[in-house]
């Protein structure tokens, strides 16, 4: 780990200013991702702006939904009664991630900005376009079992590792950020980006912008929800594939459906076509299978992640079954 400056502002405006002045600056929240990356030499900041003293921890009801501050802890959100009541799928997703110890440190903002777990990205002796643009992608012809099947590019086939973000994508959340020019709001679907030719950018945040929080609009459905994460061990492992499903079923008919997948793309992968195919249909396994098939259109696998082409739809079907309570 290199030597760095460390500041701990108490106001958002000074946090943003402290960031932008210096070249290689990083915000630090829970530190559960950033410190690991610093230890491995993947990130070498000259300056850390510790944002933990900023007043961004609230989880509260608003006129249009629920607001969650960027510094609310993953465990606080997962246990919060408003969240459990209005958006149980978010609690399910959070609890499927990491461990209780990590969730007690990890923040909502940090979770959104956690970097990929691609092994080549973490090893500074390997090529990786995301870590070092132009050095090549180690994974594309390498060990790519954990990698993307949707939206990848020749430059990068990494996946975004977050569980929480899969639920937030399904819930149509909005992100509020603060930069030197003021606040702006980003729809969650536009927050993370696909790698294209610039895998070094995980998201659409501008340099120095601080996440203030997220807003989740009221959703009609809270009963028929599921978050299913398939992984290599029962807990404390990243998703091979995960699915968030939020259904509104009335009289056996699906009135609305929101579906998103994790572990398959550079961003949480919303399944709009599959959702559309379910509207007005009965909640049956056959209909779920059809939706899963639609969801997989355009998927492309690499040498070691072919299984995701099958595990993906299977997980969608199983998540829909669980959400709908269909055996």
């Amino acid at each position: 780990m290199n030597q760095f400056q460390y500041v701990r502002p108490v106001e958002q405006a000074s946090a943003v200013k402290a960031f932008v002045k210096d070249a290689n600056t990083q915000f630090i929240a829970g530190g559960t991702n950033l410190i690991d990356l610093m230890k491995m030499g993947v990130v070498k900041p000259d300056k850390l702006v510790d944002i933990n003293r900023l007043p961004l921890k609230d989880i509260k009801k608003t006129v249009t939904g629920i607001h969650i501050g960027a510094l609310a802890l993953n465990s606080q959100v997962a246990e919060n009664s408003l969240i459990l009541q209005h958006h149980p799928v978010l609690a399910l997703a959070l609890n499927a991630g990491a461990t209780q110890q990590l969730r007690n440190m990890a923040t909502v903002g940090g979770n959104m900005l956690q970097r990929t777990r691609c092994g080549y990205f973490f090893d500074t002796n390997m090529p990786c376009n995301k870590r070092e643009p132009g050095s090549g992608c180690g994974a594309i012809d390498g060990v790519n079992r954990m990698h993307a099947i949707f939206g990848a590019s020749e430059s990068c086939i990494a996946v975004h590792p977050s569980d929480m973000c899969v639920a937030l994508a399904a819930l149509d959340a909005t992100v509020t950020v603060l930069g030197l020019k003021g606040e702006r709001r980003i729809p969650f679907a536009d927050f993370h980006r696909l790698p294209g030719d610039h895998p070094e950018h995980d998201n659409t945040l501008q340099k120095g912008e601080l996440i203030l929080g997220i807003d989740i609009p009221d959703a009609p459905a809270t009963k028929n929800v599921a978050y299913l994460k398939v992984r290599d061990r029962t807990s404390y492992a990243f998703a091979l594939v995960s699915v968030a499903a939020v259904l509104n079923i009335e009289g056996g008919i699906i009135k609305s459906a929101r579906l998103a997948m994790g572990g398959v793309a550079h961003k949480p992968w919303r399944l709009q076509n599959a959702e559309a195919s379910l509207i007005g249909k009965q909640a049956t396994v056959d209909n779920f299978k059809q939706a899963a098939q639609i969801a997989m259109q355009g998927a492309k696998a690499y040498k070691y992640n072919q299984f995701k082409l099958k595990l993906g739809p299977n997980t969608i079907v199983q998540a829909l079954k669980t959400a709908a309570g269909v055996a």
Partner: peptide
């Protein structure tokens, strides 16, 4: 897991090498 092109482990850490929990 080994990447034989580089002769390096790619999951030589406690997050990616899974001991049972």
């Amino acid at each position: 897991l080994f990447d034989d092109r580089y002769g390096r482990y790619i999951n030589g850490n406690f997050a990616d090498y899974h001991v049972p929990v």
